[in-house]
Design a protein around this nucleic acid. Sequence first.
DNA 1: ACTAAAGGTTGTAGTTACTATAAGGTCAAT
DNA 2: ATTGACCTTATAGTAACTACAACCTTTAGT
Lengths: 135, 135
Amino acid sequence: MSEKIYTVGQLAAHTDIKSVTIRYYEKIGLLPEATRSESGYRLYSEADHLRLLFIRRSRRLGFSLDDIRELLSLADRQQESCAGVDAKVEQQLEQVRSRLKDLHAMEKELERLSACCEGGVIMDCRIIDTLSGET
Amino acid sequence: MSEKIYTVGQLAAHTDIKSVTIRYYEKIGLLPEATRSESGYRLYSEADHLRLLFIRRSRRLGFSLDDIRELLSLADRQQESCAGVDAKVEQQLEQVRSRLKDLHAMEKELERLSACCEGGVIMDCRIIDTLSGET
DNA sequence: ACTAAAGGTTGTAGTTACTATAAGGTCAAT
DNA sequence: ATTGACCTTATAGTAACTACAACCTTTAGT
């Protein structure tokens, strides 16, 4: 049996990544240039499909497109050590944890603010006071 | 005693917000246009200082500049209900929590990935496998 | 008084990862 | 033949800055 071939819209439907985004990924070199039909439509192979899924999974883990570019290039070098990959994951984990820490602090402070509002007018609003620097 | 007056750099030093950013805030109308010295330097009053601190505190809670613009305008209407302010805080809290949820999921998955790498070559790398879709 | 460093001015372009819009060509079905 | 869904390109917009260029002013030191 021959391989499945996708138009950009079909690929989009299969990957939950919009056509425009797919074209954008091609433009920045994250996806190879698609082959074209006679009328100029982009045509994608199963390999492209898999590559795009890889990108999507990585995006969902919060990797930047530049990180993903590197991960993809690492993934292609089958014989080399995977230390680079491991390091990238480690680094991403650190970044996520640091962001978590920040957001946790924000959450606490917003909860505190939220609790101290008692529904009066601005003049007496403890939230505005706090933001204005009564600390 | 007369009020303290700041140049943009002095204001930057007092608020931990860079001069360029202060000018940017002015350009987008978050800060009023500064008065100028004879030579054209921006001069800031204590009121500007306080306004900028308000902005900084709000930024640290994750509010967007547009949100902050609204908060500032709410804060100016002393006689009105602070329901709007309260709602904004509530909304921001929700956003932060939603982001926390996402990041938590990322953290878990990255931990899982990180744990499954055993330092071989790419070909055998469980991380790459996972990203490539062995799920 | 002269000079160099530090700090100020403007405007423009770059960043990230898309999204929106315009103006048009193609394809499948009626 | 025409509609509607899909494709093409190029350009501009988004958030919140950051970087750069080219120039002017103030301040400190000799």
